[in-house]
Design a binder for these strands. Structure first.
Lengths: 228, 228
DNA sequence: GAGATTACATACATTCTTGAATGTTTGCAA
DNA sequence: TTGCAAACATTCAAGAATGTATGTAATCTC
């Protein structure tokens, strides 16, 4: 065929992303040829190579499109000042899990990212981007945790970085496992309970910055040193 | 070369597994040819095809060898009666994370499983095995949680299945993230604190079986129905 | 100690996949 | 309205990778 109008071109681009998502999901990224992607979108490889440099480029665009909403949620929450930061974290967790539980595209994207692709040397660029978004996630969570410290919801010597790691690890784990077997349980219903467990854990036994091995309740002086 | 003695053959088999682990880890499973594996082990593809049917078979053996110790730990703990089941769970978590933090082979295996391979149609058999071990893990954790209910460490209407999912998800998440960036923090040191967060969360806000949306503290009768 | 079998190495045919090169309309700007 | 470039399709050359088939020397068995 010949040249399309701009909107048509954008449509085929979207179609290619959708097709890639489908095919990647059930064949795996590495094992699917761009021919298959093109065929599944109803075009030829020419179209693929027009819109994307590479399979990695295509995959990258795919992830970006799929993860944008979640990242936006996190960024927005991280920049806001909350009266009840821990509650904000809780709803953030629930919202994230609910989105995963209800949006098929999000499910597909995370399924591919978690189980249907390899982050090795050839996809180093993709891995790098993924690391960057992971870091952003961690930073935003930690901001909320710091707010929680300020609001006296968490003790002053809370290791907010480690606490943030706990939270993101929990989220990653839940998503990783659920997306692998979506029929195992009703994630949407379970989300609040799961979020509660983690938040309650942070409240009850927050990770501390100090060595903390002996005398758990007796910090040094009256105030911890500024440490910053 | 020619025929080796039985012990020598076993040694080359191990060498192949080690080589595969190395090469898979930095090239990705799908992107490495069996030729590369063989070369890295100092043999030819003939040896690979002698010891393993297939790349999937090789990968399967790899996972099995690498995950055995963890599975053994879990199985043993699941079959034992504990006086303090939650403490047992805690040490189980810490032991698992410590093993990951200290054993390079375990690190490599989990790195490959989490980030360097695709579980798609062609590796369906591997995925199935992985599911099976996941299920076993969940079952064992749930056994300990049921013991915790019996010992009154957790309320009678605790949703032990969901609680077990929380625990395994947390562990998966921590391992998934740490293995991706082992230098980000000292997992061995952090392990007890992280375990504490989760265990404390289960203590403070255990997921309940009943609908629980309204009247959080008022179950039906004096005893919950047997439900089984 | 002779044959059967093991533990590989080597060779071969086949299939995929990629990247690039080239072709072909047609929308769009001047 | 012309001309250029966009939006693809088609073709081609070349390199892997796989599975199998076959070769072979040593080891184990009886």
């Amino acid at each position: 065929m010949a040249r399309r109008t701009k909107t048509e071109a954008a449509a085929t681009r979207e179609a290619l992303l959708d097709a890639a998502l489908r095919v990647f999901r059930d064949r795996g990224v590495a094992h699917t040829s761009l021919e298959e992607v093109a065929a599944s979108a109803g075009v030829t490889r020419g179209a693929v190579y027009w819109h994307f440099n590479d399979k990695a480029d295509l995959f990258n665009a795919l992830c970006e499109r799929g993860q944008m909403p979640m990242e936006a949620m996190l960024a927005s929450a991280g920049e806001t000042r909350h009266e009840d930061p821990l509650a904000a974290l809780r709803t953030l967790m629930i919202d994230g899990l609910t989105r995963l539980a209800t949006d098929p595209r999000t499910q597909a994207v995370f399924d591919v990212i978690f189980h249907k692709c390899e982050f090795a040397t050839e996809f180093a660029s993709v891995a790098k981007r993924q690391h960057t978004t992971d870091d952003g996630c961690l930073v935003n969570v930690e901001r909320l945790l710091k707010q929680a410290v300020t609001r006296r919801q968490l003790p002053r010597n809370t290791d907010t970085v480690l606490a943030a790691r706990c939270m993101t690890a929990f989220m990653v784990g839940v998503m990783h496992e659920w997306v692998q077997r979506p029929d195992a349980y009703d994630l949407k219903r379970a989300a609040p309970k799961m979020a509660d467990v983690l938040i309650a854990g942070l409240r009850a036994k927050p990770p501390r910055r100090v060595a903390s091995a002996r005398r758990a309740t007796a910090p040094r002086g009256k105030r911890a040193p500024a440490a910053r």
